[in-house]
Nucleic acid binder design. Structure first.
Length: 439
RNA sequence: GGGGGCGUGGUGUAGUGGCUAACAUGCGGCCCUGUCAAGGCCGAGAUCGCGGGUUCGAUACCCGUCGCUCCCGCCA
């Protein structure tokens, strides 16, 4: 017998069907047992008249909540039943896997344990329907990203995560033994996506793991996360990159709203707004002035940078003034940008770079890259870098590399912004942080 | 790395310088002709994170330590 999904029960009234799922609750009375069974599509009431099978009744009585079950029974239309006016009269029951009693915690209780405890028992936590939806949405997000890229003739690449040399600074790298020498975990695919531009691929993307050895204890940092990166050639400035990203995001939101808009509204209470293009753009110098005029005190040592509180304040300003959840902060000073960001010709203290803030959260950094090798060398030296370790990278720009730029986006951060969740641990499948390597 | 907060039955919380540390939920038992967030009665379950100090007396106050958490730094 094929499995029937709970959402389809109304179409098989009168038939004997098979259901598979988890025991949500058991109400065991004198003569009758009610089993509420949960599958990924909903809940259904299964009734067992105990005198029909006393042995089975005893087995059922011992089952703990969350036991995995396969049952067969006849679907009855019964308006008295509050759960969809349906019930299944139990005919047979097979325990696939008994749930031990007690559970570490009840995922369906009104109050949940703290996040740290739930992460210890992540598979139980993931049984909550909000989490199933969350990862369905994430699947659609990635699908939509790819749909848009493929329509626009992008090539997907997978760059190595084991590196022989530290790429950028070195401080936040994980190192490990690699046969007779040291290797490092990639903290960004930056160099390799630029290499694809030197290879003439013109438009590429990568979705893959990124490692950062930062001891960051915040609700938005992880030591391993999924980076969404892309790079395009023959651009005139970072404006071309932003113009691509905003339309790409608009497409993603459109697809997610089509596929999950109602469910998101119901489960997260979020009315997904498809962002209008163009997104507001604010040069950093202007952003600093806006913050001053709103009485937001930036730390003195920031030198043209903005702290997270400032980003939230700018987001509030943008929401008030443009009614928009996204804002590009552009033209960052060279002091806070890496050596490979291209400088603005008219003002060499600024870079052709941007961050994208979504609902006050930094989700993207992007830029036009410096593709002229002599400029790149000069800028690397100014940043105090040694050229030898990055020579392989500098060589990309010696034999005909087009102008190019791109961005990196944090997948989980996008999910936080989209679903209005304030802790990245809630959004990522398995969290990795400075003090968490399990499960 | 710096700062703030928290740590009480399995879980979530309350609480007070002094009798047997409270409540919810969960768990066990009994009762209830069909419940439906089921209900009723009974019961088990906490050396109040750990170490030290103040005090006649500490779960409560102080110090240290560990863990968690949030913020800053850093970033996606």
């Amino acid at each position: 017998m094929d499995r029937t999904l709970i959402k389809d029960l109304r179409s098989v009234i009168g038939q004997t069907i098979k259901l598979q799922g988890w025991l949500q609750t058991l109400r065991d009375q004198k003569k009758i047992q009610f089993l509420i069974l949960r599958d990924p599509t909903g809940l259904a009431q299964v009734a067992h008249w105990k005198p029909n099978d006393e042995v089975l009744a005893e087995l059922i009585a011992k089952m703990g909540a969350e036991t995995a079950l396969t049952i067969t029974g006849k679907v009855i239309d019964n308006p008295i039943v509050k759960l969809n006016g349906l019930e299944i009269q139990l005919e047979s029951l097979e325990v696939d896997n008994m749930a031990e009693i007690p559970l570490p915690f009840d995922p369906f209780a009104e109050t949940l344990p703290t996040i740290d405890y739930r992460l210890d028992w992540r598979y139980m936590d993931l049984r909550r329907s909000v989490n199933a939806l969350l990862f369905q949405v994430q699947t659609s997000v990635e699908m939509a990203m790819r749909e848009y890229w493929v329509k626009n003739k992008f090539i997907e690449v997978h760059s190595p995560k084991l590196m022989g040399t530290p790429s950028e600074s070195g401080a936040e790298l994980f190192s490990l033994d690699y046969f007779e020498r040291k290797a490092y975990l990639a903290q960004s695919p930056q160099f390799y996506k630029q290499m694809a531009m030197a290879a003439g691929f013109e438009r590429i993307f990568e979705i893959g793991p990124v490692f950062r050895a930062d001891p960051s204890f915040t609700s938005r940092h992880m030591t391993e996360f999924t980076g969404v990166d892309m790079e395009i050639s023959w651009i005139n400035s970072h404006e071309d990159v932003m113009a691509f990203e905003e339309r790409w995001l608009q497409y993603i939101y459109t697809r997610v709203k089509e596929l999950h808009g109602d469910a998101i509204k119901k489960q997260f209470g979020v009315d997904l707004v498809i962002p209008e293009v163009p997104f507001p753009r604010i040069p950093m110098r202007e952003a600093v002035e806006i913050l001053k005029s709103r009485g937001y005190a930036l730390p003195a040592d920031k030198k043209g940078d903005i702290d997270p509180g400032g980003e939230r304040e700018i987001a509030a300003y943008v929401k008030e003034k443009f009614n928009h959840d996204f804002v590009f902060l552009t033209d960052w000073p060279i002091s806070v940008r890496p050596f490979y960001h291209m400088r603005i010709p008219e003002d060499q203290t600024l870079t052709r770079s941007f961050d994208l803030i979504a609902c006050g959260l930094e989700i993207t950094t992007g830029a036009q890259r410096e593709h002229r090798v002599e400029m790149l060398q000069k800028q690397a030296l100014e940043k105090g870098l040694h050229l030898e370790p990055i020579q392989f990278y500098l060589d990309f720009f010696r034999y005909g590399c087009p102008s190019h730029g791109g961005f990196g986006l944090g997948l989980s951060r996008l999910m936080m912004a989209m679903l209005n969740l304030n802790n990245i641990r809630e959004v990522v499948y398995i969290f990795r942080g400075p003090t968490r390597l399990n499960p």
